[in-house]
Design a protein around this nucleic acid. Structure first.
Length: 293
DNA sequence: GAATCACCGTCAGACACTAT
DNA sequence: ATAGTGTCTGACGGTGATTC
C-alpha cells in the first residue's frame, strides 16, 4: 500500500514537472469538416452556445457578474493567451473502463463548458443521448432520466463532437494549448471524455491539457487549525468556503461549471497560481487516451 | 554492558470522501 | 451503484537516553 502510495506520489511528481506544450495534431476530424459555431442554433438539437459579458483577452478571469476578473502573474516565457475552459459532465454513472466493449459502461448525458475569457459564444452546453437507460437513482442527483435524453432530438456524442471541436477551435489561440479545468477531472471527467472520443474513433487533440481543481483544493490552506480537510474538498464545500451562492438547477452541468468558475478563480488567488504553475499542474490528453488501452 | 523506556518513522489495513 | 485517493489508527522496529 505504502509502496503504491509512493509510486503514486512519484508519478504525480513526474507529471507535474513535465512541461506539456505540444503542437496540435490530428483530431480524427479535419478542421475543414468542422461546423461553424454560428450554425449551432440552426440544428434541431438542444446544443447551445451563449454569450457572456466580454472581457479583454489578456484577462483570464471569468466574465460572470459580480466577480472581479482574475489575472495570473505574468512570466517572461508565457503570454496569457491560452483558453481556459471550465467544464463539467453528467453521466449515467461512474467511470468504468470498458476496453473493447463500447456497448457496456456508463455514458455522458450532459456536457457544459465555459471559456473564462468570456465574450461572444463563450459557453457551450448540450444534453447528450447516451443510447442506454439512465439509472433511476440519478433522477434525484441531477434530474436527468431516460425520458429526457433518450429521444431523437437529443444528439449523441458523435453528433456533438464536431460542434465541440469547432467551439474549442473558435476559442483557441494558434500555437497555444487548451486548458480544461474540472472538479475531479483526472479521475472522472477527462477519462470519460477520452472514452467518448475513443468510441467515435477519434483522439483528443494533444494540445489539450486537463487540470483537476480537486487536486488544487488539496493545496489550499486550512481556515482553522482544527479543520478536517477531507470534508472541504467537494465543490459544494468549496463554494460555501468562498461564500458563493449556487444558481440554477441542482447538480446540472452548467450550474456546476458556473460554480467552479467562481471557486477556481478564488482558489487561484489563494494559491497564488501563475499561468506557468497551472500548466505544470496539467495532465496531457494523451495520458487519458492511454488509460483506455 | 544490559535492560528499560520514550520517541519517532514506517507500514498495513480500515474507513471516508469524491465524482455521476 | 465504482474506483482512486487521502486520512487515521494501531502495530512494529530502530535509535538514543537513562538507569542499574
Amino acid at each position: 500500500m505504502a509502496l503504491l502510495f509512493r509510486f503514486s506520489q512519484l508519478r504525480n511528481s513526474i507529471w507535474s514537472s513535465c512541461p506539456a506544450r505540444l503542437r496540435m495534431q490530428h483530431t480524427g476530424l479535419s478542421p475543414g469538416t468542422l461546423l461553424d459555431p454560428k450554425s449551432y442554433e440552426k440544428r434541431l438539437f438542444s446544443t447551445r452556445v451563449q454569450e457572456t459579458a466580454s472581457l479583454h483577452r489578456t484577462d483570464l478571469g471569468p466574465c460572470i457578474s459580480g466577480i472581479q476578473p482574475l489575472k495570473f502573474q505574468q512570466t517572461s516565457e508565457h503570454e496569457q493567451s491560452a483558453p481556459l475552459l471550465i467544464f463539467d459532465i453528467e453521466t449515467t454513472g461512474f467511470f468504468q473502463k470498458t476496453t473493447g466493449n463500447f456497448q457496456k459502461g456508463n455514458r455522458i448525458t450532459e456536457f457544459a463548458v465555459r471559456d473564462l475569457c468570456g465574450g461572444k459564444n463563450s459557453t457551450f452546453e448540450t444534453l447528450i443521448n447516451p443510447e442506454r437507460d439512465v439509472p433511476g437513482y440519478l433522477k434525484k442527483v441531477n434530474n436527468i432520466n431516460t425520458d429526457l435524453v433518450c429521444k431523437p432530438d437529443v444528439p449523441r456524442f458523435s453528433d456533438v463532437l464536431p460542434l465541440l471541436l469547432a467551439f474549442v477551435q473558435s476559442r483557441q489561440t494558434p500555437g497555444k494549448p487548451v486548458i480544461w479545468v474540472a472538479h475531479k477531472a483526472n479521475t472522472f471527467d477527462a477519462p470519460f471524455l477520452a472514452q467518448e472520443f475513443n468510441r467515435c474513433s477519434a483522439q483528443m487533440p494533444e494540445d489539450w491539457l486537463f487540470v483537476d481543481s480537486h487536486c488544487l483544493a488539496r493545496k489550499l490552506p486550512m481556515l482553522e487549525p482544527s479543520e478536517d480537510k477531507k470534508h472541504l474538498l467537494n465543490l459544494e464545500s468549496l463554494s460555501k468556503r468562498y461564500g458563493i451562492s449556487a444558481e440554477g438547477s441542482a447538480h446540472r452541468a452548467m450550474k456546476d461549471v458556473t460554480t467552479l468558475c467562481h471557486v477556481f478563480q478564488k482558489m487561484s488567488f489563494d494559491l497564488k497560481l501563475t499561468y506557468e504553475g497551472l500548466i505544470n499542474e496539467a495532465t496531457k490528453a494523451s495520458y487519458f487516451s492511454k488509460l483506455l488501452k
